[in-house]
C-alpha cells in the first residue's frame, strides 16, 4: 500500500457514495445511466469472485464487499425504488458493444486460462469502458448536474491515481501488471475530455454543459 493507491481507493469509495447519496437524498435517478451502473456491478462481481478463495487483507475484503453491495444498491435504486425518475429515454448506449469486446479481449489477454483469471481480465477490460453509457448520456442531454460531475471526477481520478501507484510499484517492488496498466490508461484517457470540462466549468461555479 502506498499513498497513491490509498488516495485512489478513497477517491473510488467517495465516487460510489456520492452517487448513492445523490440518488437517495434527491429521491431521483435523473441524469444517471443505469446501464453504466449495471456494467460496474458486473465488473465487481466478476473481479471479486476471489473473495471465496483468497484472502489478502481485511482492508481488501471490506473494500470488495463494499463495492459489490454499493453497486447492487445503486442498480436497485435506479431500476426499482426510483424507477419513475430514471431517464431511460436518454440511456440508450448499447452495452453489448462493450461487453462483447471485453470478453474477447479477456480470451486473448489473461495470465492463465482459468475461469477466475478470465473473469478477472474481463472485469479489468470492462471497467475501462463501463462509464461510456454515462458519458454518452451526458453528451446526449447536453449537461450534467454538479453532483453527477463530482461523481464522475472522483471515479475518473481513482484510476488516474492508480497509474501513479503502478509507476511507484514498478520502481519500488518491480511489480508490473500489464493488463491492468493498459486498461487503466485507456480508462483514464476516456475521462480526459470530462476532466477538462470539470476544471473549466464546474469548479468555476457553472454547470457542466456539452457543446452540441
Amino acid at each position: 500500500m502506498n499513498l497513491f493507491r490509498l488516495m485512489g481507493d478513497v477517491s473510488h469509495v467517495l465516487a460510489v457514495f456520492i452517487l448513492l447519496a445523490k440518488i437517495w437524498r434527491t429521491r431521483s435517478a435523473a441524469g444517471i445511466s443505469g446501464r453504466s451502473q449495471i456494467l460496474f456491478t458486473i465488473v465487481y462481481l466478476a473481479r471479486y469472485m476471489d473473495l471465496f478463495f483468497s484472502f489478502i487483507s481485511l482492508y481488501n475484503t471490506v473494500m470488495k464487499l463494499l463495492f459489490i453491495s454499493a453497486s447492487c444498491a445503486t442498480v436497485y435504486l435506479i431500476y426499482f425504488k426510483f424507477r419513475a425518475t430514471y431517464d431511460g429515454n436518454h440511456d440508450t448506449f448499447r452495452i453489448e458493444f462493450v461487453l462483447v469486446p471485453s470478453l474477447l479481449l479477456a480470451f486473448i489477454f489473461h495470465y492463465s486460462m482459468s475461469f477466475f483469471e478470465l473473469a478477472w481480465s474481463f472485469s479489468i477490460f470492462l471497467e475501462a469502458v463501463a462509464i461510456l453509457p454515462q458519458l454518452f448520456m451526458v453528451t446526449k442531454t447536453g449537461e450534467a448536474e454538479n453532483i453527477t460531475s463530482h461523481y464522475l471526477f472522483a471515479l475518473g481520478s481513482y484510476r488516474a491515481l492508480y497509474i501513479l501507484n503502478w509507476i511507484y510499484r514498478y520502481y519500488t517492488e518491480g511489480h508490473f501488471d500489464p493488463i491492468a496498466v493498459c486498461a487503466g490508461i485507456v480508462q483514464t484517457i476516456l475521462y480526459c475530455d470530462f476532466f477538462y470540462l470539470y476544471v473549466t466549468k464546474v469548479l468555476q461555479g457553472r454547470k457542466l454543459q456539452v457543446l452540441p
Binding site: 481507493d9 473494500m63 470488495k64
Partner: peptide, 10 residues
C-alpha cells in the same frame, strides 16, 4: 511473481 498469483489491488 506473476500478477495472477496475487491480484492485491481493487
Amino acid at each position: 511473481t506473476l500478477p495472477s498469483e496475487a491480484h492485491d489491488e481493487l
